[in-house]
Simulated scan of single mutants.
Amino acid sequence: MRSVTLAFLVPLGLLVATPAALAAQVPTPVAACTVTDPELGELSGLAADDGHWYATNDGGTAATVFVLGKDCQVEDVVTGAIDPYDVEDMARAKDGTFWLSDTGDNDNDRETVALISLTPGGESTLYRLTYPDGKHDAEALLLDPAGTPFIVTKSALGTADVYRPAGPLTSPGPTPLRHVLAVRLNSTDTPGGPVPGVVGSVTVTGAATSPDGTAIALRTYTDAYLFPMEDGDVVGALSAKPVRIPLPNEVQGEAIAFQPDGSLLSASEGVGEPVNVVAGAARLVAPEPAPEKPEPASASDSTESSPATEGLPAIPATVVTVVVVAGVYLLFRALRRRKAY
């Protein structure tokens, strides 16, 4: 987003949402390094693997991904032949393909938005999309474990609408989108962002999925919200209560990503801004391990625990009952016969 313009400020009383849990032991973001390359002055999308970080700028005149070392230095640039309108976020698929979210629409004047796939070799494909309910500005993209894209809109009112393609993507399209969920966020007092107060803390500016598919992150200018995900169910995940991680004092925080080890990356637009790391973030929403079930006792275990029956064959309970009843009956008759004599 090149500039932030708001027609109004939202009164605090208008925001009604389920508050996120602030984990008791949330790790503090730590600056890993500083982005100094002027070519990345509008960094708004991040992805990561074991060896590198990948970044894209807001806007742009080409489908471009910068390959960074983990010292924030640009090592390579991947560029496709497509001229986008306003790229706002990026996700990386399991096969290494980059997906650029050309979904920015500050003035709500686009008839279509788009996704752009970009291979590491520079091959790019455009997929146009249409909303079912009017025009939206969106700055967040995530992929589920199967590679299905989900677009999350940006709203100063604190309600982020989530859309996914209604069918397979076609190029150039357009493919219709389907509304699947609305996520509401509460305001926070975390400092930072270009818009002070309520609005900046509820406006979704980025999204990410953990590489192992167990967590989703949505971010605002000031905070990250982590949701646990099971079986690739994005809608179910975003319907749950999240854990909030403050990302304080980012000038214009728009980028977020998970590393393979579960740590969370966040970054801001602006030359000289850091890439911050929240160590172990994904573990905050990891499912509790299931308790171990005791192994059932075997017949041999029962035999060993009963020395009086060692070496004897097992006798069914019904047989034992019949024998006991017959013995009592015979004893009773014998006693009666003795009394008769």
Rank of each mutant, 00 (worst) to 15 (best):
D261K: 10
S300R: 07
P313L: 15
T125V: 15
Y225M: 10
P316H: 05
V77A: 08
K154T: 03
T103N: 11
G173P: 14
T222D: 05
G41I: 01
K241Y: 00
Y127C: 05
A63G: 03
L115G: 06
P165H: 04
P289K: 03
V77L: 08
E304Y: 04
Y341R: 14
A299E: 11
L247N: 03
P194I: 10
A93D: 12
N276I: 00
G60P: 03
L264A: 14
V323G: 09
G121F: 00
A314E: 15
I116V: 13
Y85H: 14
L43D: 02
D137G: 00
R2E: 10
G173S: 13
V78S: 08
L22K: 09
D223Y: 08
S201H: 11
A156D: 14
V251L: 12
A286T: 13
G13K: 10
M1W: 08
Y127Q: 01
L9G: 06
R178G: 04
S187C: 02
P228L: 03
P149W: 00
A286K: 15
P316A: 12
L238M: 04
G272W: 07
L40W: 05
A48P: 02
D223E: 09
V285S: 00
R283M: 09
D133S: 11
S306D: 08
A93F: 00
G59I: 10
A281C: 10
S101F: 05
G60N: 14
T130Q: 14
L169M: 07
E123W: 00
Y163E: 09
I116R: 02
L218Q: 07
G173E: 12
